[in-house]
């Protein structure tokens, strides 16, 4: 099933790029050229064969680790993506770690102090943060931490090769912009999950045995309540990758995002297609893993 979905995903992506108006040869040739030269170029690029043949051809080499040659840069797509892939991957992972690292303690704390001012205020603040678009958060972070407090220099991305801590420090702010709304959503889900778990019989039994609220929470509830959250977290990595496409633009991070937007506009299909298929594959695989994970934690859930 996983394979079928992956194949369909790549086919859909391939066809989508087929129907976009515009011809890559014009970008290469410019305005002063003859039809013959264009035709010859189309021939040499293999553009005059049928769609299906080209798709299978592309798929074959893609699976062998060769996603083709970029039209725009006349170099292998792998070369073009080198470095950029790592940047987006690090940014996404960093955001993901932030989401997990902050939302779990915060979510549990909210339940623990449910009836205290902290808990009540926390829930409201959380609700508001859920409504923040990541790119708007990015703009605000740039303004506050970049321009006013000067904690980082907006636009001066430090590559890994120069300084690993420097790079991570720069990426921290975009990661924050991406993760804050996600943290809010996760916290909300976790809180709801814990609260519904608390109403179950076994919790009442535990109470009757004299356990304190915190003991019950810690020893019984949290583990069970984590189930839907874990699934959600696994699946949210995909959303994080997608948000990073926009947030990278706000922070001038040289990741896949800028390359994707540029390659779509330049009709550099091999590059765009490779990025789209890679991201979609991550999503499919994460969803699949989430299913397996759910099943492993809770045997009542069956994979369909």
């Amino acid at each position: 099933m996983l394979l079928v979905t992956l194949l369909l995903v790549s086919l859909i992506a391939y066809l989508a790029f087929e129907i976009i108006p515009g011809d890559p040869t014009t970008m290469l040739l410019g305005s002063d050229y003859s039809e013959e030269r264009a035709e010859a170029l189309r021939e040499s690029m293999g553009l005059n064969r049928s769609v299906l043949v080209r798709y299978l051809d592309w798929l074959g080499s893609f699976l062998h680790g060769d996603p083709g040659t970029s039209y725009s840069y006349a170099m292998p797509v792998r070369e073009v993506l080198r470095g950029k892939l790592a940047v987006t991957a690090v940014l996404s992972l960093m955001s993901w770690v932030l989401v997990i690292g902050v939302s779990l303690p915060f979510g549990i704390a909210l339940v623990r102090y449910q009836n205290k001012p902290f808990g009540k205020l926390g829930v409201s603040v959380n609700q508001v943060f859920m409504a923040f678009p990541p790119f708007f958060l990015g703009i605000m972070l740039t303004y506050i931490f970049g321009l006013l407090l000067r904690l980082f220099t907006p636009g001066r991305f430090i590559p890994f090769s120069e300084s690993v801590p420097g790079c991570l420090a720069y990426l921290f702010f975009p990661a924050l912009a991406i993760s804050i709304p996600k943290i809010a959503k996760t916290v909300k889900l976790l809180r709801a999950s814990i609260l519904s778990e608390m109403k179950r019989d076994y919790v009442l039994t535990a109470y009757s045995h004299g356990s304190s609220r915190w003991m019950v929470l810690k020893n019984h509830v949290v583990r069970n309540a984590l189930l839907p959250v874990v699934t959600y977290l696994a699946m949210s990595l995909a959303d994080i990758v997608a948000s990073s496409i926009i947030v990278e633009q706000v922070f001038v991070v040289p990741g896949l995002g800028r390359l994707l937007v540029a390659s779509i506009s330049n009709r550099d299909y091999p590059v765009a297609l490779c990025i789209v298929v890679m991201i979609a594959s991550v999503v499919v695989i994460m969803n699949y893993l989430a299913d397996i994970l759910t099943q492993a934690i809770d045997p009542r859930v069956r994979l369909s």
Partner: peptide, 27 residues
Amino acid sequence: MKKRILALVLAVLMTAALCACGGGKSP
């Protein structure tokens, strides 16, 4: 117990802030 959670949250925030200061200093 209460303190431990607070400390955890604080630690996360501190690390974040330190991270930020360390690399972001612009002469």
